[in-house]
């Protein structure tokens, strides 16, 4: 049987449906009154350069563990009922979605706080790297912190 984390936390190449992710957290309880989502999308500029595409790499195994850990800490430290996190990897076109986090709670404030914390923690602790394609070539974003 799949654990909840393996259903609600995913790193995948294919796109995701924000609506399906929202429904997956709403299914946890009839006591949910608010779902807050963060959606990260691929924009066409970065630090003054035109970006024509993105490519994400992750550390298989460790990145999944870090996302599961974020969900579990969010459930422990915030008054939320459920959280889902889906991050894409591989090539992503401009305008496409990269990551979605959905936090569900009885009241909106808890979900807002948990969602904001989770995306900040994802960026801080999850071994995922972005490579930007510009007119002058491909650049790992970590090369220019």
């Amino acid at each position: 049987m799949k654990t909840k984390s393996s259903v609600l936390v995913k790193i995948q190449e294919k796109g995701f449906s924000v609506g399906e992710v929202v429904e997956s957290v709403k299914a946890a309880s009839k006591g949910i009154g608010a779902v807050v989502t963060f959606l990260g999308a691929a924009r066409d500029f970065s630090k003054g350069s035109v970006i024509t595409g993105l490519d994400f790499e992750h550390y298989p195994g460790m990145a999944e563990k870090k996302l599961i850990d974020i969900r579990e800490r969010a459930l422990k430290n915030f008054d939320i009922i459920e959280m889902a996190i889906v991050h894409r990897t591989g090539k992503i076109e401009i305008g496409e979605d990269i990551v979605v986090i959905a936090a569900a709670s009885a009241h909106r404030n808890d979900a807002f706080m948990a969602c904001e914390w989770a995306i900040t923690e994802l960026k801080r602790t999850t071994p995922i790297w972005k490579r930007e394609t510009t007119k002058s070539g491909e650049v790992w974003v970590s090369e220019t912190p």
Binding site: V99, L122, K123, R124, W129
Partner: peptide, 10 residues
């Protein structure tokens, strides 16, 4: 052992 440059996910 993993050698991990600064992360840039999200």
């Amino acid at each position: 052992v993993g050698l991990l440059p600064p992360f840039s996910g999200g």
